[in-house]
Nucleic acid binder design. Structure first.
Lengths: 197, 197
DNA sequence: TAAATAGTGTCTGTTAGACACTATCCG
DNA sequence: CGGATAGTGTCTAACAGACACTATTTA
């Protein structure tokens, strides 16, 4: 997600959302609040990626930025927010944009973190509806990792990870092709073994 | 490494080294400087682990701590430093100590980071002399990971990682047992495949 | 010689990927 | 029927751990 910058430098350009922490706030609480103010959304999952503190990273003042990766499976249509315009776009478009400060590096770091989260956690399922098919899950992996995965092998790999998914017993037909079995998310927080890229 | 605290809280107790960043300093530069001031040593390798900013983490004032992991292969004997007493000790002793603020959590996070560095990078070799044996290397892994490794399998595993180590052609006898071939560090920065724990 | 460490051979079970094949839908 | 997607079977190459065995030293 990006915002349109309201002030200089780069007024009107795109940037990563953010803001200043309050005196009585935790880092994660502040990240949640900023995202809520700029998108109106509550985030389920946040993860600290890193801290950026080069003396010249912001020409206006000495600042430190603590970068968080937020997982937001259900995006609203169009733009939202009150502080600034929240704009949803594919990451490669945002990477190609002219981002201010050290935001390009931040975005690169966050993308890498997101990709590796999919290997070790069942977080991809949160981008699917509560009841999903293995094909749904595979499409999330393919989008985030940016590469095609073999459906047959993916099928088995997911099912071999204990506690990743739980069969519902139902099947669903999604237009074309053989109807797929449906699953709900299991109860593990870490995938053993991980799904390697 | 720990220091003896000069001030309250927990005066005279152990704590992780640290200090305040200067206005014109990068985060990593500040970490290097603090370590130099407290130990007199130059560090070769630093890695940011995370940032800690709970509002009550320091009762004296609102602070943020950016934690760095430093790799210091050549420790001097005894204590060093001018600001405070630098004390070298095994991490489990330090973990068992009564550390102030959120330093226990920091230490836990840093240890986990160090362990995983050994899987993906040739950093363990920096704890050996420039010319070392596979046995030397194995002992570093055994200490950091805290478990015994099969010498035969470790041997092959290290040699199968392209660019990890380079044979010198010499052998060295270290007291007991058959003399070992010696190696120097290769030129890779990442191990493919990684040495799994 | 015994004990210790280095290094090789080899077996076994697991895994990853490739790909053929079957199953079941839609139009 | 053909095309699309789901799911299974199976083969192969790579890999990891266990462990027997050889090699070479010191005490």
């Amino acid at each position: 997600m990006a915002i349109r910058r309201a002030g200089e430098p780069n007024r009107g350009g795109l940037a990563l959302p953010g803001g200043f922490i309050h005196l009585d706030e935790d880092l994660e609480t502040a990240a949640r609040r900023e995202l809520r103010e700029e998108t109106g959304l509550e985030v389920d999952y946040l993860e600290q990626v890193g801290t950026y503190g080069a003396p010249d990273r912001d020409p206006r003042a000495r600042t430190f930025a603590v970068l968080y990766l937020a997982v937001l499976p259900n995006l609203p249509e169009g733009s939202t927010g009150k502080d600034a315009d929240a704009i949803w776009m594919p990451v490669d478009e945002l990477l190609a944009a002219d981002l201010p400060f050290d935001h390009h590096q931040m975005l690169t770091d966050a993308i890498e973190r997101a990709r590796s989260k999919l290997e070790y956690t069942p977080i991809a399922a949160s981008f699917c509806r509560p009841v999903f098919t293995i094909g749904d899950l595979r499409r999330v992996y393919e989008i985030v990792w940016g590469k095609h995965l073999n459906p047959a092998n993916f099928q088995r790999k997911v099912q071999s990870v204990e506690g990743f998914v739980r069969e519902t017993g139902d099947v669903v037909s999604e237009g074309r092709g053989r109807p797929a079995k449906t699953y709900t998310l299991g109860d593990v927080t870490t995938l053993h073994p991980p799904l390697r890229r």
